[in-house]
Amino acid sequence: MRTGIVMTNGVSSAMGRELPLRGAVNARDLGGLTTADGRQVRRLRVFRSDLLTRLDAGDVAFLLTDCGLRTIVDLRAPGEIVTDGTGAVVDAVAHYRNLHIYGADRVRLDLTEVSPDGSMFDRYCEYLEHSSENIAAVLGLLADPGQLSALIHCAAGKDRTGVVIALLLAVIGVRADDIIADYAATTANIAALRTRDGRPARPDDAVDRLPAWVFAADAITMRQFLAHLDAEHGGAAVWATRAGLDQATQRQLAENLLCD
């Protein structure tokens, strides 16, 4: 048995929330994050991860048995799924949904040529505009107790996953500092994400010519994003309501995911 999820004084550290998966390098439980009124996200309810295609049989068994995984929500584009696949775990869970999160060009940022003066903050704001319906659909799934436990992932588990998880946590009232810390926890895994395929970097690789900000998970970026949600949209709950997630569903979402 590989539990690997350690709680200290009732609160999980970033390290303690990491899932001990051999085939994923940026996977963790949201359990232990704290709301403004002192409640905590329940353990083993929602997980976030990078690509799942390299999970081995032990990883799959751990997710199903130790974590009670029932649902996978895949935020990648259909073309990515055709190219990279889904992995054996998808065939083992009760539910699988593909809800693509995209910006104006509908293409992964790390597969495009981008200007050196861009920012992930700008990209994240695009997700709010262009993928609101799909983001609301993800949150709506998590409001159904029959879908839990659920794992949300994209390719790196950083940008599309990062925005969806940030909105989820903000809607249920998790403190901004905890949301930001959870996002920034990916920083420790960036090197592993970039070398995950086991190939050496080549000077002519398009990905290697991209600016460093494309690969960063800086706390300031998420802080900007949350401030933008408040200033331009009236907060995550108001944004979610406008995106189609009614207040009753938001309350059910909090009930499913929070404990005293």
Rank of each mutant, 00 (worst) to 15 (best):
S115I: 10
P116L: 06
G118T: 02
G118E: 05
S119V: 10
S119R: 07
S119M: 13
M120F: 04
M120Y: 01
M120S: 12
R123L: 14
Y124V: 06
Y124D: 12
C125R: 15
Y127L: 09
Y127R: 01
Y127T: 04
Y127H: 15
S131T: 03
S132C: 11
E133I: 01
E133Q: 14
E133H: 12
E133S: 14
N134I: 00
N134V: 00
A136Q: 07
A136W: 03
A137I: 01
A137Q: 13
G140S: 12
G140Y: 00
L141Q: 11
L141W: 03
L141D: 08
L142M: 10
A143S: 15
P145E: 15
P145Q: 13
P145A: 14
G146D: 06
Q147G: 02
Q147H: 14
S149L: 00
S149N: 00
A150N: 11
A150G: 08
A150M: 05
L151S: 07
I152S: 06
H153Q: 12
H153W: 09
H153T: 02
C154Y: 08
A155L: 10
A156S: 11
K158R: 15
D159H: 05
R160K: 13
R160A: 12
T161K: 09
T161A: 14
V163G: 07
V164I: 07
V164F: 05
V164N: 02
I165D: 07
A166S: 14
L167T: 10
L167E: 10
L168H: 09
L169R: 03
A170R: 12
A170C: 08
A170Y: 04
A170L: 06
V171Q: 01
V171D: 09
I172C: 02
I172G: 03
I172R: 08
G173I: 14
G173W: 11
G173A: 10
G173H: 12
G173D: 12
V174K: 08
V174D: 05
R175C: 09
R175V: 01
R175I: 01
A176F: 05
A176V: 09
A176W: 04
D178R: 11
I179V: 15
I179Y: 03
I179M: 10
I180P: 00
I180Q: 02
I180G: 04
